[in-house]
């Protein structure tokens, strides 16, 4: 086996995996805190990706300002979606949450297609196609930027969830809703915080993915189904599980795409999901029965 090729595939997979993780973590967070499955999650990313694509030329292709615009746009979109739709749902209203968010997803997707057409956008940044050689492998700056942004975000997320009252409250509501009420928390306020956080992760994922892949209206749908597979593999509601499963899936997909016919790449994640569901129905990282939500 050509080890340089293998390392190259691994590096590419790691970057994609980190982007998957941004999406999946937000989805897992919403599932935990609100007890709902957000099918419109991919469209928040889509909005972030288009915001990045449109903002970059305005900032002379500067990466960071573009990413900030993407995150802010996704946060505003997420906030609207929460206030208008999700806040009307009771906890764990699964069927309604699925239908409402699925409908929203299709409306947003078609709205974007109407405004920007289905023609894919090729997104250029200040980095262009330049890259850096690390040993024998070459990684584009846009991929490095995506990886660094994601890694910094996960570190910040870890601190937020473990060391601040806002973050701890999100974990608290997802662990036990009754106990959250017992200590005077307002689940709705915490739900809104979780949506804003998840939307900002989506916006960042959109910004990171835009220069790496083509931006087109189906980008979000394509990624969100993988995110579902990832949170199922990781154990619904488990954030560490989602990060681990996302990175693993990114790398495995990249290997499969590199060594086998590329059509199998897409099927890989779902094959793993089905296998995990058959062997360990609660996912790889789920924690016993005490967990509520």
């Amino acid at each position: 086996m050509d080890y340089i090729y293998f390392l190259q595939l691994t590096a590419n997979g790691l970057v994609i995996g980190l982007i998957y993780a941004l999406i999946a973590v937000g989805l897992a967070l919403l599932f935990g805190v609100l007890g709902i499955v957000n099918f419109a999650h991919g469209e928040l990313l889509l909005i972030g990706a288009y915001a990045m694509a449109l903002a970059l030329p305005a900032f002379g292709l500067a990466y960071m300002p573009g990413a900030i615009v993407a995150v802010l746009t996704a946060i505003i979109a997420g906030w609207f979606i929460y206030e208008i739709f999700l806040s009307k749902l009771g906890h764990g209203e699964f069927e309604r949450s699925i239908l409402i968010t699925m409908g929203l997803s299709i409306v947003i997707l078609n709205g974007i297609q109407y405004i920007f057409t289905a023609t894919p956008l090729l997104v250029n940044t200040e980095f262009g196609y330049a890259g850096v050689n690390i040993g024998d492998i070459r990684v584009a700056w846009t991929r490095i930027a995506a990886a660094v942004l994601s890694a910094v975000t996960f570190a910040a997320l870890y601190v937020l969830l473990n060391y601040t009252q806002i973050g701890r409250a999100m974990r608290a509501v997802s662990q036990n809703r009754d106990a959250a009420l017992m200590v005077g928390m307002q689940p709705r306020k915490i739900g809104r915080n979780a949506v804003i956080l998840a939307a900002s992760l989506c916006g960042l994922a959109g910004a990171a993915v835009a220069p790496v892949q083509l931006v087109q209206p189906y980008l979000g749908q394509f990624l969100v189904f993988k995110a579902f597979a990832i949170i199922i593999i990781g154990g619904m509601g488990s954030i560490e599980g989602a990060v681990f499963a996302a990175i693993a899936l990114g790398i495995i997909e990249s290997w499969i795409g590199g060594f086998f016919p590329v059509v199998w790449q897409e099927a890989a994640g779902f094959l793993i999901m089905i296998t995990v569901l058959l062997l360990k129905p609660s996912g790889l990282f789920s924690r016993g029965g005490v967990r509520v939500g």
Partner: peptide, 26 residues
């Protein structure tokens, strides 16, 4: 008004210290 519901009503994956911090939430 404080209410301690029936059954296990705490945050099982958090430490005792974190649970008490949640008790100070407001």
């Amino acid at each position: 008004i404080g209410f301690v519901p029936q059954g296990r009503c705490n945050f099982p994956d958090m430490t005792v210290s974190e649970n008490l911090k949640m008790g100070c939430y407001t």
